[in-house]
C-alpha cells in the first residue's frame, strides 16, 4: 500500500532534507522546494516508509506528514 506524503507548503522553506532522504520519490525544484518525480500527489510505496517517516521527523519546518499517520 502506498501512502501520500503531504507537504504543508506554507511551512516549507525548501531546505531539501526530504529530497535527500527520498531520492526515489522527490527531487528539488529550481527554488529548492520538494518536487514529485511523477505528476500528481507524492506517493510513498511501502518499502520507503522508513525514510519517509525519517523525512517527516527531520523536516526542519515540520512541513511534512504521511497520510493517515
Amino acid at each position: 500500500m502506498t501512502r501520500a506524503l503531504i507537504v504543508d507548503w506554507t511551512a516549507c522553506e525548501g531546505r531539501g532534507l526530504c529530497a535527500g532522504l527520498l531520492p526515489e520519490v522527490l527531487t528539488q525544484d529550481k527554488w529548492g522546494y520538494p518536487q514529485n518525480l511523477t505528476p500528481g500527489p507524492i506517493l510513498v510505496p511501502d518499502e520507503l516508509r522508513g525514510p519517509a517517516r525519517q523525512a517527516v521527523r527531520m523536516c526542519p519546518r515540520l512541513a511534512l506528514r504521511l497520510e493517515s499517520e
Binding site: 507548503w9 506554507t10 516549507c12 522553506e13 527554488w31 529548492g32 522546494y33
Partner: peptide, 9 residues
C-alpha cells in the same frame, strides 16, 4: 506569498 512554488512560480 506563503507557499514557495506559488510565490516564485
Amino acid at each position: 506569498q506563503q507557499c514557495g512554488p506559488c510565490q516564485f512560480g
